[in-house]
Design a protein around this nucleic acid. Structure first.
Length: 614
RNA sequence: GCCGAUGUAGCUCAACGGUAGAGCAAUCGCCUUGUAAGUGAUAGGUUAUGGGUUCGAUUCCCAUCAUCGGCUCCA
C-alpha cells in the first residue's frame, strides 16, 4: 500500500479523545507528580556530579521519567549507580518542593549559564512553544520549582516534598542519546531513563513485567525455536525463514489464500523491479525516493527495486478496457518489497528492509464504494480474529489540509469508512486531518497478550494514483470514468505479523499454526516401533508429528518438547502398547491421561479446525 | 543516520598484554527408562573484519560491519 508520501508535510497531530482523557487522568495523579519530582531529584544528583553540566528537559513518561543532559563525558552504568544512590540521600533529606512564579527576566537570571533553559524561557515568553516545542495559544506563566539545592524551570505539579518518594521504589534504567527537542539537526544529549512507583512492590512488579516481555521477545524465541534468523553475511534487515518459521508462514498464508479465494480476490504476481518511468508516473521517485534502493542500471535504463506493489497492479488493471460490470476488481499479492531503512532502526522482524506485504488493491465504481469498504473491513476483522487477536481498535484518518482529489470524494469516502466502522461495532478514534494526502484511511491495531498495541491492517483510499495513471472504466453511460482505488494490507508485513504472533503467543502457537503439533515419546527402545506406527496414523490425518526415539530418558524428552512448546506430547510405554493407546500431555503440563489413538486424533483435528487457542 | 554499550564454541557466559575455559547443545558409547535435565567420552574457537601500538594483542588504540538500548523515521 502506498503509505504516506508526504507525511511530514501533511501530518497534523490532533489529540485522540479517550487517549486524551487517560492522559489527563495520569497527569493529575500522584504517580505523575512523583515521577516528575523524581526527575528533579535525579537532575540535582547529576548536577552535583557534573557541576558544569547543562540540563534540558525531564518529564514523566509511561512507566517513569527521564531527564536530558548535556554533559562533559558519556555516562557509564557505574555513574547511574552513583546517581541513584545520591538520589536516595536527597529523598531522605525530605526537602519541600516550592513553587514560585517569576518574570522572564528573573528566570533568565536564575538560569544564566543554562542555554537549554534560556531557550525554553524564550519560548515561554514568546508564548509560541512549550517545553516539547509544541505550539501553545496563551502566554504561559513562568514558574520555577525548588527543592533541596535544585531549582528547575517547571510547570509542575510536584509532590509536597522529596520524602514522599519511596527510595526503594525508584530505579535508573539506562542512558540513551536523544536530540534536543527531538530534532536530528540539534545537539545530541544524554537521556537518563528512570522508573518510579508509589511502592517498592509496584517497582518489583514492573521489573517482573519487563522480564516477562523479555521472555517473549520474538528475537530470542526465534532463535530458541529455530524460526528465523537475520544474518550479518546476508545483510541487516533481511530475514532468513528457517523450516519451522517457514512452516508457520506457509500455514498462515494457506489460510489467507483460502479466505481470499472465497471472497472473490484474484491473485497476481509482479516483478521485484520496475523501470524508472513507472516510478516517475506513480510519484514514488518524487515523494518516496529516500526510502528506495539505488537504481540498477542496465542497457541505459534505470530499474528500481519495488518499495510498493501498487503500480504493478495498476498496470495489470490497465491492460484492458474495464467495464463497470467487471468491478469491483480485487487484485491480491503477497508482494515482497524493499525499503531503505536507516542503519540504526532495524529491529528483529518488526523493522526490516525486505518484507512481504499481504497486499491487495480494490478498484471499484464510486457507487460500489460503500459496499466495498464494508466488505474489506469485515474481511480484515475476520482475518485478525482467526489468528487469535480479539482486541482490535480502529483509527480513522481524515482529509489533511493539503490533499489531492475533490473534497466531496473525500467526505464520501470518510463517511463510508466511518459507517463501516459503526456497523462493525468496532471501537475507533478519529484522527482529524491525519490522512495521507492521497486519501483517508482506517488502520487497525491489535492488543497482544501483554497489552501492547501493534498496527497490523491498513485500509487506504487513493485519489492520487488513478489520476496519475489515468485509470478508467466504462460506465453505463458508455463513457470512461475514473475508478476508486483502495489499498489494503491485512497482516501488514508478513515478517512483522510473524513477530507480533510470536510475542503474542510467547512461542506457544495455537495448534493449527504449530510447526510440530505432536511429539511422541517412547519410554524405551522396545516402544519405538509402536510410536512410529502411531505417528504414521496421525500423519495420515494431516497432523505434524515427530517421534523422539533418542536414547534420552522420558523426562528429558518431555522437557525438550516443553521447551520447544509442542502442544501435545504422547508418552507410549508398555501399558499403551497393550491397549493401542497414548498417554496425552499438553504443553500446559495438563495430563489428559490415556486415550485411544483415534480419540486423540479427533481431539487434535477438532482444535485445528476451530483454530483453538489455549 | 545520530548518541551510548556490546561483539570470545551452535546457545548462555568466564578469562586475559605472554596465542582461550565452563555449562547446555552436538557426536559416539553405556543405561532401557512412566510425565521438565541418567551417565561417560569425544569433537568444537586465526576471540566479528581490517589496520595500528608492542618483543608479543584475543586483551590497548583507530576504522568498518553487526547487534542491543534510545533518538529520528516507520509496515
Amino acid at each position: 500500500m502506498c503509505e504516506i508520501f508526504l507525511r511530514r508535510l501533511m501530518r497534523k497531530i490532533y489529540p485522540k479523545e479517550d487517549k486524551m482523557a487517560e492522559k489527563e487522568k495520569y497527569e493529575e495523579s500522584k504517580l505523575y507528580r512523583l515521577r516528575h519530582s523524581a526527575a528533579h531529584v535525579m537532575a540535582q544528583a547529576v548536577l552535583e556530579k557534573f557541576p558544569e553540566g547543562k540540563v534540558a528537559i525531564g518529564p514523566p513518561i509511561d512507566d517513569g521519567f527521564y531527564y536530558d543532559f548535556d554533559l562533559p563525558r558519556p555516562l557509564t552504568p557505574e555513574d547511574l549507580d552513583e546517581i541513584e544512590a545520591r538520589m536516595k540521600e536527597i529523598i531522605k533529606n525530605d526537602s519541600e518542593f516550592i513553587r514560585q512564579e517569576v518574570s522572564a527576566e528573573e528566570a533568565r537570571e536564575i538560569f544564566n549559564g543554562q542555554p537549554y533553559k534560556l531557550e525554553l524561557i524564550q519560548g515561554l515568553e514568546e508564548g509560541g512553544l512549550d517545553e516539547h516545542g509544541e505550539p501553545v495559544d496563551e502566554k504561559p506563566v513562568i514558574s520555577i520549582y525548588k527543592d533541596d539545592t535544585f531549582v528547575d524551570l517547571c510547570r509542575g505539579p510536584h509532590l509536597k516534598s522529596t520524602g514522599e518518594i519511596h527510595p526503594n521504589a525508584i530505579k535508573l534504567m539506562n542512558v540513551a542519546g536523544a536530540y534536543w527537542r527531538g530534532d536530528e539537526n540539534k545537539p545530541m544529549l544524554q537521556r537518563i531513563y528512570g522508573t518510579a512507583w508509589l511502592t517498592p512492590k509496584e517497582l518489583k512488579q514492573y521489573l517482573w513485567r519487563l522480564e516477562e516481555a523479555k521472555k517473549r521477545d520474538h528475537r530470542k524465541l526465534g532463535r530458541e525455536l529455530d524460526l528465523f534468523s537475520v544474518n550479518e553475511e546476508v545483510g541487516s534487515g533481511l530475514v532468513l525463514w528457517h523450516p519451522k518459521g517457514a512452516k508457520i508462514r506457509f500455514l498462515a498464508e494457506r489460510f489467507w489464500e483460502d479466505e481470499h479465494i472465497k471472497n472473490d480476490y484474484e491473485f497476481v504476481y509482479t516483478p521485484h523491479i520496475g523501470k524508472a518511468d513507472l516510478w516517475e508516473t506513480s510519484g514514488h521517485l518524487g515523494f518516496y525516493a529516500e526510502n528506495m534502493y539505488a537504481p540498477i542500471e542496465i542497457e541505459n535504463q534505470k530499474y528500481y527495486l519495488k518499495p510498493m506493489n501498487c503500480p504493478f497492479h495498476i498496470e495489470i488493471y490497465k491492460t484492458g478496457i474495464r467495464s463497470y460490470r467487471d468491478l469491483p476488481m480485487r487484485l491480491a499479492e503477497k508482494g515482497t518489497v524493499y525499503r531503505y531503512e536507516r542503519s540504526g532502526v532495524m529491529h528483529g522482524l518488526m523493522r526490516v528492509r525486505g518484507f512481504t506485504q499481504d497486499d491487495a488493491h480494490h478498484f471499484c465504481a464510486p457507487s460500489q464504494m460503500p459496499e466495498e469498504i464494508d466488505f474489506v473491513l469485515s474481511f480484515s476483522l475476520n482475518m485478525l480474529r482467526s489468528f487469535g487477536f480479539d482486541e482490535i481498535k480502529a483509527y480513522l484518518s481524515t482529509m489533511p489540509e493539503k490533499a489531492v482529489g475533490e473534497p466531496k470524494q473525500w467526505h464520501d469516502a470518510e463517511d463510508a469508512l466511518e459507517a463501516a466502522l459503526k456497523r462493525a461495532e468496532l471501537p475507533y478514534e478519529v484522527d482529524e486531518g491525519g490522512g495521507a494526502f492521497y486519501g483517508p484511511k482506517i488502520d487497525l491495531k491489535i492488543n497482544d497478550a501483554i497489552g501492547r498495541e501493534w498496527q497490523l491492517s491498513t485500509i487506504q483510499f487513493d485519489f492520487n494514483l488513478p489520476e496519475r495513471f489515468d485509470m478508467t472504466y466504462i460506465e453505463e453511460d458508455g463513457q470512461p470514468h475514473r475508478p476508486y482505488m483502495i489499498h489494503r494490507a491485512l497482516l501488514g508485513s508478513i515478517e512483522r505479523f510473524f513477530g507480533v504472533l510470536i510475542e503474542h503467543y510467547g512461542g506457544a502457537f495455537p495448534v493449527w499454526l504449530s510447526p510440530v503439533q505432536v511429539v511422541i515419546i517412547p519410554i524405551a527402545d522396545r516402544h519405538a516401533e509402536f510410536a512410529h506406527g502411531v505417528a504414521d496414523e496421525l500423519k495420515q490425518a494431516g497432523l505434524r508429528v515427530e517421534v523422539n526415539d533418542s536414547s534420552d530418558r522420558m523426562n528429558a524428552k518431555i522437557r525438550d518438547a516443553e521447551k520447544q512448546k509442542v502442544p501435545f506430547m504422547l508418552v507410549v510405554g508398555d501399558r499403551e502398547m497393550e491397549e493401542g493407546a497414548v498417554d496425552v500431555r499438553r504443553r500446559s503440563s495438563e495430563r489428559l491421561g490415556a486415550m485411544k489413538v483415534g480419540e486423540f486424533k479427533e481431539l487434535v483435528v477438532k482444535e485445528v479446525e476451530e483454530k483453538a487457542t489455549e
